[in-house]
Amino acid sequence: METRRNFLQKLAASAIVLPMAPVTESWAADAISHEPYDGPVLRVAMMGLGSYANRVADAMKSCVKAKIVGVVSGTPEKITDWQDRFGIPGKNCYTYENFDSLKSNPDIDAVYITTPNSLHRPYAVRVAAAGKHVISEKPMAVNAADGQLMIDACKKAGVKLLVGYRLHFEARTLEVVRMRQAGEFGKIRFFQGLSGFRIGDPTQWRLNKQLAGGGSMMDIGVYSINGARYMLGEDPIWVTAQETKTDPVKFKAGIDETIQFQLGFPSGAVASCLSTYNMNNLDRFFLTGEKGFAEMVPSTGYGPLKGKTHKGELTSPHITHQTQQMEQFAGILLEGKSAPIPVDGEEGLKDLKIIDAIYEAVKTGEKVMLKL
């Protein structure tokens, strides 16, 4: 197991490559300034104890600023397992029926929601009403209307809403953003995002419209949408999209198999992207401008990510994405720190508005204008 000292040394090393860029100043300073660390610790309850919750929790073993202290689950066996693995007291264990009583528990600061997509909004609203910060896995909700309800609920309750955009803290990604901000690529002309894999078990919740809200676009396609925005440093103003479905048995009505979509930006740059549940080996971002380029392959996996630019290979050290994310979330929620690329509810809402527009473009065959 990685020691605390080794983790801090790696964290510091990854920050060294980014200090000159305004977008990275706050996260870099935060990453290298705590040895030994004796500041506030973010106490997190995980909601929905599936595979990704386990990945986050295991990554948090290396955190010094965040800790798993509670769980919310509908499966008693999972609760018992997590209690044994993470030393969680019984008073911090909840079901979906009784977690509103979090309000009277001062030992939990935030709840990280990793349930199926359609449950993000109703559970986030209840968590906010209980006075706890909300961390939602992406996509933040199944549509923009639900996303706005989450934002409104958190504002009303005076708590913060964050979205699990782990790549917004990833060092190689941030180096490309720094280079773009510094003008090293020149005027950006084009972005390509390819996001996809062949999905397995046809009975899983990701292929259930009521739980997932859609198909590949609501899962893997979000990466290309969000990546286009932070790589180009702009929000799109129009979208066009086309759907291809080769297996209507596995990918039933409302579950998109493959969608190609195009985004137009105020600067004149364009993006061409693909989201699919039926093709492997698709995890690539490519950015080109008048002076240079950047390519990341893989661009969004759990890592290590790999990439190169016209100046050479991207070599920043790899840190487990979820460890880095939760360390930075602690700084945001407890110390008022800023993220290098936004991770708040408004950021999540922009992606949801684009997803809504993509589905509309698929349905109508028309270009859909965006106002984000």
Rank of each mutant, 00 (worst) to 15 (best):
F251R: 01
A182S: 09
I332N: 05
P298L: 11
E346G: 05
D283F: 04
K250M: 08
V249P: 06
L18Y: 08
A157W: 03
K160G: 09
K138V: 02
Y123E: 08
I68E: 00
Q210D: 14
E257N: 07
E327G: 12
K337H: 10
L370H: 03
E184K: 13
M47G: 06
I113W: 09
K250T: 12
M369I: 13
P40W: 02
D235K: 03
S51P: 00
D201Q: 15
S136Y: 09
T173N: 05
F185C: 15
R55L: 11
I358V: 13
N143M: 14
Y52P: 02
R178Y: 04
R180E: 11
A157F: 05
P89I: 08
N280M: 10
W82K: 01
K91I: 06
D351G: 10
A124Q: 07
K306R: 02
E243Q: 14
E290R: 03
Y112D: 13
T75F: 04
K363C: 01
V134C: 04
V17L: 12
A53L: 02
A269N: 06
M20Q: 13
I237P: 01
G254W: 12
A59N: 07
A157D: 05
K187F: 02
T203S: 12
V44F: 00
L162P: 07
K132M: 09
A330T: 05
N54W: 07
N54L: 10
T258L: 07
A271D: 01
R189F: 06
M326I: 14
G131Y: 00
K209E: 15
G193D: 06
K308E: 05
K10P: 02
R189T: 13
T323S: 07
P106C: 05
I355T: 15
F99G: 11
F191H: 06
I108G: 03
E346K: 15
Y223W: 12
W82D: 00
I188L: 08
V142S: 05
L161Q: 08
T246D: 14
L8S: 11
T203I: 08
D109W: 07
Y359H: 15
D247E: 10
F329H: 07
V176L: 12
T315R: 06
P139G: 00
G268V: 11
G307K: 04
V125K: 11
D146M: 12
L211G: 00
K187S: 03
R55K: 11
D351P: 05
I188F: 00
V134Q: 05
Y94I: 15
K245P: 13
M217L: 15
G268W: 03
L352N: 01
D201T: 14
I79P: 05
L232D: 12
K353L: 11
G264I: 08
A212G: 03
L42A: 10
D344S: 15
E170C: 13
Y277L: 13
V249M: 11
L287I: 15
T309D: 09
E366R: 15
M231Q: 13
Q262F: 04
T246F: 00
L349M: 10
R85M: 04
V111F: 04
